[in-house]
């Protein structure tokens, strides 16, 4: 049972990571900095709860703000570059952040132990949940509550005018600009929202794993972050959730029995999925036909 609870936690946190990339991708920006925002969130939240003994909620709030500000700061210079240039620029930024934490030591004496992040060894003993009597189940509920809130907010954003504006920028920046949209503001805002979501995700991640270190936040995590929404499709937030379940639940955990051979199949299946559905699981056409199926059922039962 614990195995499934743990898996559900992983899926929840990775969904947050994927959603942070989702809202950046809507504006046509492919960012490999999401893992860095996630790392910022993780370290900030953990430092606040472990060293400053803050309440988790306050710590998560601050980590969201700090990550959001970091993302906003990246968003401005990143506007100057597009496409592959942006991918590489954000990758460089992400690696720089990772290497920053690789060199980052900030420890205080707590009884016999020293606590806090310690360079290459990482940040151990983030024991907020056990110390405050949260059960695994409580943690799980909390994670999914956050996922639900973020998804609901993004869903609402998607349906609103703001979502349409973001998609317009993603579709055709020049056209969006000429129809009076402030492209700069939209792109930086999307980046900032992505940073906030990644910050929350990272903060939670630090607390349920209890141990974070720089290697966890490298290029691989960054690529996973954009792989989720791309694989899931950009037509709505559920595609990302679906892709996280597919990758984390099925490809990584479900195929664990294959042992060393798992990654061979893992690669093949993702390539297969991308070949079959280059626009993701839930693209506009897929959603339309799904709706037709559902509503056709209703109509026939009504008639």
């Amino acid at each position: 049972m614990d195995f499934y609870l743990g898996l559900a936690q992983v899926i929840g946190v990775h969904t947050l990571l994927g959603l942070s990339a989702y809202c950046v991708l809507l504006t046509g920006q492919v960012s490999l900095a999401q893992a860095a925002f996630f790392a910022v969130g993780a370290y900030v939240a953990a430092i606040l709860t472990v060293i400053f003994k803050w309440h988790l909620f306050a710590a998560l709030g601050v980590s969201a703000v700090v990550s959001g500000l970091t993302a906003c700061a990246v968003g401005f210079p990143a506007l100057r570059v597009k496409g592959l240039m942006l991918v590489v620029a954000t990758l460089a930024f992400g690696e720089a952040v990772r290497l920053f934490f690789f060199n980052f030591t900030y420890q205080i004496q707590a009884g016999e132990l020293k606590i806090g992040p310690h360079g290459a060894e990482g940040f151990r003993q983030i024991r907020y949940f056990p110390e405050h009597g949260w059960s695994t189940f409580d943690v799980l509920m909390f994670i999914w509550l956050m996922v639900a809130i973020v998804m609901a907010c993004l869903w609402w954003l998607d349906q609103s005018r703001a979502g349409a504006v973001m998609r317009a920028v993603g579709e055709d920046e020049v056209a969006a600009h000429s129809s009076g949209i402030n492209v700069t503001a939209v792109k930086v805002l999307a980046m900032t929202i992505g940073g906030v979501i990644a910050g929350i995700g990272g903060g939670i991640f630090a607390h349920y794993t209890t141990h974070i270190e720089h290697v966890q936040f490298g290029v691989i995590l960054a690529t996973f972050a954009i792989a989720y929404p791309i694989l899931g499709g950009l037509s709505n937030v559920f595609g990302t959730l679906l892709a996280v379940i597919f990758i984390q639940g099925f490809l990584i955990e479900g195929l664990r029995f294959l042992g060393d051979w798992r990654n061979l199949l893992f690669g093949a299946l993702i390539v297969l999925a991308m070949n079959l559905r280059p626009r993701g699981f839930l693209d506009a056409g897929g959603v339309a036909s799904l709706k037709r199926m559902l509503f056709a059922g209703k109509e026939s039962s009504g008639a």
Binding site: V30, T223, D260, G267, A268
Partner: peptide, 26 residues
């Protein structure tokens, strides 16, 4: 991958990266 699916190519090449790395370790 047809025109317009550049990012699908990128994600696929990432998946193949994991595959090749695993093959090397095997």
């Amino acid at each position: 991958m047809k025109a317009g699916a550049g990012i699908a190519s990128m994600v696929s090449s990432f998946a193949i990266w994991m595959q090749l790395e695993q093959a090397a370790v095997l």
